[in-house]
């Protein structure tokens, strides 16, 4: 069931993945893969199963059938191992508000048993453009963008080859989104594999190599983001509108 890992062609794979929670099908026969250095964006409306997909890669949801693999290892069989290879960025990037940005990063690094010098931490802060004077301020004084930057700095410092990003640009201003997208591209260029779930169609087109469209837990389409002009906008809109229709 588990292979050597490092030789896997794809770092992230979902194979005929089905997930049910409380007898309700959340994901149905979901199959996609993300290669090393690739940025893959999962697009979909509310309730399409984007975050559930991410949670399954993180080992919080158990597949009812099918497989979910990280670097060739089945997630639920080698949870600790695969989690060490992933850096997760939650939607609201809620770190501890009573700690400073530096203390938050130090706390989480210690939890991961990763030792970093102050200069390395400062370098990560510089990379995410977190100003010098903000680094020793409590997070409760930060804007959402600054909190997001702190969380990204943490993800970078973990040196994980895989990034799982949950609605990373939600609530950010356009400048912050732009900065974030550049950073994701930069990470991918340096060899990181990124799976991001988002409902920002145009942001996804900007940053991702490929885009998957989720509807009702099913992958209804996959596109090369380079050909974003050719995206079936009707399908995209249908994927988003469907939720609203079903709610009505």
């Amino acid at each position: 069931m588990t292979n050597s890992g490092s030789s896997a062609k794809y770092l992230l794979e979902a194979k005929s993945l089905c997930v049910s929670i409380d007898n309700k099908n959340i994901l149905s026969s979901l199959s996609f893969s993300v290669a090393k250095g690739e940025v893959y964006a999962l697009l979909g409306g509310n309730g399409a199963g984007k975050s559930s997909t991410l949670k399954t890669f993180l080992g919080f949801n158990l597949p009812s059938s099918g497989k979910v693999l990280i670097d060739g290892d089945e997630v639920n069989e080698s949870l600790d191992k695969v989690r060490r290879k992933t850096a997760y960025l939650p939607e609201n990037a809620t770190l501890y508000p009573h700690l400073t940005a530096r203390e938050n990063v130090e706390y989480f690094l210690s939890l991961a048993e990763i030792s970093k010098s102050q200069s390395e931490i400062d370098k990560a802060f510089e990379r995410v453009s977190l100003q010098n004077d903000a680094r020793d301020k409590q997070l409760q004084t930060f804007s959402k963008g600054m909190r997001q930057k702190t969380a990204i700095a943490l993800a970078i410092l973990r040196n994980a080859p895989i990034f799982l990003l949950d609605e990373p640009t939600s609530g950010l201003d356009p400048v912050a989104i732009d900065e974030f997208n550049n950073l994701v591209r930069e990470l991918a260029t340096s060899g990181a594999t990124v799976l991001m779930v988002t409902h920002d169609v145009y942001g996804a087109c900007q940053v991702a190599n490929r885009i998957g469209l989720l509807r009702h837990g099913e992958l209804v389409g996959q596109f090369e983001a380079k050909q974003n002009e050719k995206i079936d906008t009707e399908l995209v809109h249908a994927a988003f509108a469907q939720r609203q229709t079903s709610e009505v």
Partner: peptide, 18 residues
């Protein structure tokens, strides 16, 4: 509730350490 749970769990090398 604060949205930190998943980040904490996925960051910790072992659950017992957290």
């Amino acid at each position: 509730t604060s949205g930190r749970h998943d980040l904490l769990v996925t960051t910790a090398k072992m659950k017992i350490h957290l």
